[in-house]
Design a protein around this nucleic acid. Structure first.
Length: 809
RNA sequence: GCUGGGGUGGUGAAAUGGUAAACACGCUAGGUUUAGGACCUAGUGCCCGCAAGGGUUUGCGAGUUCGACUCUCGCCCCCAGCACCA
C-alpha cells in the first residue's frame, strides 16, 4: 500500500530523534578533522524569524551536514546577541522590562530555529545578556584597557537624538543613525574608545589572505581608507606658529594660493587677527549648528571667513591668506589644508566665490596647457624645466624629498578609520567595569569582582544620560585600591563589543574560569565558514577582526599567525518581498511558520536554496515552493514503489549527478545542486535502480532534505542515522560509445546527430556530409576548413554565396 | 567623483570559448474530477508559417576566433558602498 508523503510526521519524528540521541553535539575528537561553521550572531527580535533569516541558516546547515558526511567533527552552534537598543525600546512600548522582552523573544526564536531541522548543538547555546557571558565581555574590556587599547577621551562624537545615545562612526550612515534613521548631531563628550586605529594597516593587509567575497573586502578597504601622502609644514607669517597639512598631491604645491582650517581647529584662536575675531567666532558658532548631513552635502555652496593671517608657501615663498571653512573636515588629516584651486574642484569653487587667486601648475603629464608658475627666492626647489618632464608620481616624490631635507615635509600615511567609540548612554548592555575614586582616580574593576552586574530594578527610559546613574546601589561603590568611596562608570558597552568575541565562547561555553579554554579554541578556530548578510561588512566583521588580532597580540589566543578568526566568509543575498526589503513595519514579511506547516521544513529549505544563487538578492515568491514540494513528493513516491534491480551496476546519469552535486556544494552553487537533483528524478521516474544506487541518491539529497533522507534511509534498511554514513565516491563513467554531436556550418548549429565517439575526423566528415539537411546547407559552397571535436562538435567553414532562406516572401 | 557587483524569456534563473534559455514558477490546450483544488499529458524566447521548416535573439557598438552570454576595447543603464577624505 502506497503511503503519501507526510512531511509533518516525518519531520517531527526525526527532529525528536536527533534531540534524543544528541546527534549534533560537537566533539573534540582528534581522530578526524574539524569543521567550524557559524552563522552571524542573531539579534532575538520579538518579531521572530522571517524567510530571509532562514536562507543563511539553511546554507550553513547544508554545508555542515555535507561536512559531517565527510566524517568531520562539526561545530555548528547558535546563540543570541541579546543586549541592545531594540529590546529596550520595545520594552518601553510594551511597558515591560528589556530582560522580560528578551527572554520572551529568545524562546520564540529558539522554537523557530528548531523548525529548520539544522544540526545546531543546543548544548552550547549562549546569550550575550547573560551574566555568565558578559562577565567575559567585561574581562575583555579590562584586558584591552590594561594593554592601552581602551581609553577615555573628550571629543566631538556622534549623538542620536532619538536613541539618546552616542554612536560609533560605523553606525552613522550618510549622517543618519544606522538604527532609526534620525539625523545625527555632534556633541562634545568624554567617552570610551577602543584603539582600532592601531590595527588599521594590519586590518587592511590581512584582507589579501582571506577567502572572503571581493565586495566585502572592498567595503572594508574603503572604510579603512588608507591614503599615502605628505605632511607639510606651512609657517605662518610674523608668528611662531605653523600649519601642518596632509596632502596626496604634493606635486601641486606650487599652486597653493591659500589655506583653509576646519572651524573646530583650535589653532584659529592663536592666529586670527583682532579685526577678524568677531567674524571668525560667529562663523564657528554658525557651523556648529549645521547638522552633519548638511555639512556632508557636496552640492552645498561654499562658506568661509578670512582670519586675517597669512602663511608662507614653502615651495614658492609666497604669502597666502588663511581662511576658515567647513568644507575642510576636522576629522580627517590635520583639520587643515593647502588649497590649490587650479587642481581641486572644491578649492576652485571656494576661490571663485571669495575671489582668491588661482594659479596653475604645469600639468605633470604635459597634456594640458598650463601656465608655468613663476616662483621666487630659496623656496625654489625644482626648476620648471625638470618638473615639466616628470610624471606626477615622480614630481610628488621629488618635491617631498626636497621639502624633507629642509624638515618641512615628511611622507605620511593617513587613514579614514577612527577609533571605535563604545560607550552608550543606555541601559540594556554590559556595564563598563571601571570605578572613579576621589583619591585614586580612574580604576579598573579587579577581575575577581566580575561581573559588574547590570541592576534589574532601574528607571531605564532614555534621557541622553546613562540610566545607571539613577541606581544609587549600582553607582556607589568602594575603590578597589584605597577602599574609600568611589562611583562606577555608568555607561554600558556597545553591543558590537559583545558580538566581537562570541565565536570564541562557543568553543567552551560553560567555562567558569576562563572566557574559553585554550585547547578548545585551538581545536576549533579559525572558523571554516562564516555565513551572514553584507550589512556587517564595516561593523561587526571589522570589530571582530580587530578584537581577535588584539587578543592574539596579547597572547590570549594563538590559533594562527594572522589572528584572523574567519577564514572563509559567505555573504547571503537579501530576500525581497514585493520589491522591498522584508520588514514587519512595512507588513511585507513571509513567515516560515506557516510555510513549514503547509509544505514542511524540507520543502522550505529546498526553496531557500533553489530560489536563486545564494549570494545574490532574490525576490520571494511563495508560489515557487510548490515546485520543490512537488519534487519531494516525487522523490517520496519513487522510493515507496522502489523495486530494486540487481546490484553493483553503474548508471552514468546517477554518477554524473553525484559529480555535479558535489561540485555545486563545494562552490556553494546550491540552486544548481537542487536543479541537478530534480533533473535526475525526471530521468529516473520510469526506471528501476539498484539498492546501492538508491542509497547513493539518498545521500546526496540528505544535506538539503535531512528529514526526508533519514526516513528513506530507514526504509532502505538503514540501521542508524544517515549522517553517520559517508558521502558517495564518484565512479568513473562508463565509456559511452555514442554521443550527440552538433553539426555546425560557419559556427551555426544546423543539426544534432548521435555519432560514435571514437570516429576519426575523416569518418565523421563522411557521415555528417552525407546527411541530406547538411548537404542542402553546404550546397555549391567550398569547404575551406573543418574543425572536429569528437563527442562535441564538427564545424564546416565554407566560402561561396551565403546560404539564403529558401522562402523569400 | 572613486570602488565593487550586475544587465539573458512573462518570472526566478542555467550555460570548462563548442546545441543559449537547463531546472522550476506561471501561462495555454487536453485529460481526470459533481465543482474547485490537486494530479497527468502536450506546448511555451521572439518573428513568419496550418505544418514541415526557416529567420532571429544574451544592454549598445567594435574587435579577437572556425565558433563569443563567456575573452579584449569603447559606450549606456541598474544596484551597492564610500565621499567637500585634500
Amino acid at each position: 500500500m502506497k503511503e503519501r508523503y507526510n512531511h509533518q510526521k516525518i519531520e517531527k519524528k526525526w527532529q525528536d530523534y536527533w534531540e534524543e540521541t544528541k546527534a549534533h553535539q560537537a566533539k573534540e575528537s582528534k581522530d578526524r578533522p574539524k569543521f567550524y561553521c557559524l552563522d552571524f550572531f542573531p539579534y532575538p527580535s520579538g518579531d521572530g524569524l522571517h524567510v530571509g533569516h532562514w536562507r543563511g541558516y539553511v546554507l550553513s546547515d547544508v554545508i555542515s551536514r555535507y561536512q559531517k558526511l565527510h566524517g568531520n567533527n562539526i561545530l555548528h552552534p547558535m546563540g543570541y546577541d541579546a543586549f541592545g537598543l531594540p529590546a529596550e525600546n520595545a520594552a518601553i512600548k510594551e511597558n515591560s522590562h528589556p530582560k522580560i522582552y528578551t527572554d520572551k523573544a529568545i524562546s520564540r526564536f529558539r522554537k523557530q530555529l528548531k523548525q529548520i531541522g539544522a544540526m545546531y548543538d543546543w548544548s552550547r547555546e549562549i546569550s550575550s545578556a547573560d551574566p555568565s557571558y558578559y562577565r567575559w565581555t567585561q574581562w575583555l574590556f579590562l584586558k584591552l584597557y590594561n594593554a592601552g587599547l581602551a581609553y577615555r577621551k573628550k571629543a566631538p562624537v556622534n549623538f542620536c537624538p532619538s536613541c539618546q545615545t552616542v554612536l560609533a562612526n560605523e553606525q552613522v550612515i550618510a549622517g543618519q543613525c544606522e538604527r532609526c534613521g534620525t539625523i545625527v548631531s555632534k556633541k562634545e563628550l568624554t567617552q570610551w574608545f577602543l584603539k582600532i586605529t592601531n590595527y588599521a594597516q594590519k586590518l587592511l593587509d590581512n584582507l589579501e589572505k582571506l577567502d572572503w567575497p571581493e565586495r566585502t573586502k572592498t567595503l572594508q578597504r574603503n572604510w579603512i581608507g588608507r591614503s599615502e601622502g605628505t605632511l607639510i609644514k606651512f609657517p605662518i607669517a610674523n608668528s611662531q606658529f605653523s600649519i601642518d597639512v596632509f596632502t596626496t598631491r604634493t606635486d601641486t604645491i606650487f599652486g597653493a594660493t591659500f589655506m583653509v582650517l576646519a572651524p573646530e581647529n583650535e589653532l584659529i584662536f592663536k592666529i586670527t587677527q583682532p579685526k577678524q575675531l568677531a567674524a571668525v567666532k560667529k562663523y564657528r558658532k554658525q557651523t556648529q549648528t549645521i547638522s552633519e548631513i548638511d555639512q556632508e552635502d557636496t552640492d552645498r555652496r561654499k562658506t568661509g571667513v578670512f582670519t586675517g593671517a597669512y602663511a608662507l608657501n614653502p615651495a614658492t615663498g609666497q604669502k597666502i591668506p588663511i581662511w576658515i571653512a567647513d568644507y575642510c573636515l576636522f576629522s580627517y588629516g590635520t583639520g587643515a589644508i593647502m588649497a590649490v584651486p587650479a587642481h581641486d574642484k572644491r578649492d576652485f569653487e571656494f576661490a571663485e566665490k571669495f575671489k582668491l587667486p588661482i594659479k596653475q601648475v604645469i600639468s605633470p603629464d604635459g597634456r594640458q596647457n598650463y601656465k608655468i608658475l613663476p616662483f621666487v627666492d630659496d623656496g625654489i626647489l625644482i626648476n620648471s624645466g625638470s618638473y615639466n618632464k616628470l610624471s606626477s608620481k615622480d614630481a610628488r616624490e621629488k618635491i617631498t624629498n626636497h621639502l624633507s631635507k629642509k624638515n618641512i615635509a615628511k611622507y605620511e600615511v593617513n587613514f579614514r578609520l577612527r577609533d571605535w567609540l563604545i560607550s552608550r548612554q543606555r541601559y540594556w548592555g554590559a556595564p563598563i567595569p571601571i570605578v572613579y575614586c576621589q583619591k585614586c582616580g580612574l580604576k579598573p574593576v579587579p577581575e575577581k569582582d566580575l561581573p559588574v552586574l547590570l541592576p534589574e530594578n532601574v528607571e531605564f527610559h532614555p534621557t541622553g544620560d546613562s540610566p545607571l546613574k539613577l541606581s544609587k546601589k549600582f553607582l556607589h561603590t568602594t575603590c578597589p585600591n584605597c577602599h574609600g568611596k568611589a562611583i562606577r562608570e555608568t555607561d554600558t558597552m556597545d553591543t558590537f563589543v559583545d558580538s566581537s568575541w562570541y565565536y570564541l565562547r562557543f568553543c567552551d561555553p560553560q567555562n567558569k574560569k576562563e572566557f574559553a579554554g585554550h585547547k578548545f579554541i585551538n581545536f576549533w578556530l579559525p572558523i571554516d565558514l562564516y555565513v551572514g548578510g553584507i550589512e556587517h561588512a564595516t561593523m561587526h566583521l571589522l570589530y571582530a577582526r580587530f578584537i581577535c588580532m588584539a587578543l592574539h597580540d596579547l597572547k590570549i589566543v594563538n590559533f594562527s599567525d594572522s589572528g584572523e578568526p574567519f577564514k572563509k566568509l559567505f555573504n547571503i543575498g537579501l530576500i525581497y518581498l514585493g520589491g522591498a526589503k522584508m520588514s514587519k513595519s512595512k507588513g511585507n514579511v513571509a513567515t516560515p511558520d506557516e510555510i513549514v506547516s503547509k509544505y514542511g521544513s524540507d520543502a522550505l529549505r529546498g526553496y531557500e536554496m533553489f530560489v536563486g544563487p545564494v549570494d545574490q538578492d532574490s525576490q520571494w515568491q511563495t508560489s515557487g515552493i510548490s515546485g520543490v514540494y512537488r519534487f519531494l513528493e516525487k522523490v517520496w513516491d519513487y522510493f515507496q514503489k522502489a523495486d530494486f534491480t540487481e546490484d553493483n551496476q553503474i548508471d552514468d546519469q546517477i554518477e554524473h549527478t553525484i559529480n555535479k552535486v558535489t561540485d555545486d556544494i563545494k562552490n556553494l552553487h546550491l540552486n544548481t545542486a537542487i536543479s541537478n537533483l530534480m533533473k535526475l528524478f525526471n530521468y529516473l521516474i520510469d526506471k528501476k535502480i539498484t539498492l546501492s544506487n538508491a542509497k547513493k541518491i539518498n545521500l546526496i539529497l540528505a544535506p538539503f532534505f535531512p528529514h526526508l533522507a533519514e526516513e528513506i534511509n530507514q526504509q532502505l534498511d538503514g540501521k542508524e542515522s544517515i549522517f553517520n554514513s559517508t558521502w558517495p565516491e564518484i565512479n568513473k563513467l562508463s565509456q559511452k560509445e555514442k554521443l550527440p554531436i552538433a553539426i555546425q556550418i560557419n559556427g551555426k548549429t544546423r543539426k544534432i546527430i548521435i555519432l560514435e565517439k571514437n570516429l576519426s575526423q575523416k569518418e565523421a566528415e563522411t557521415i555528417t556530409l552525407a546527411d541530406p539537411k547538411i548537404k542542402k546547407f553546404i550546397d555549391n559552397q567550398k569547404i575551406i576548413k573543418i574543425i572536429y571535436l569528437s563527442g562535441k562538435v564538427i564545424n564546416f567553414v565554407t566560402k561561396g554565396k551565403k546560404w539564403q532562406s529558401q522562402k523569400k516572401d
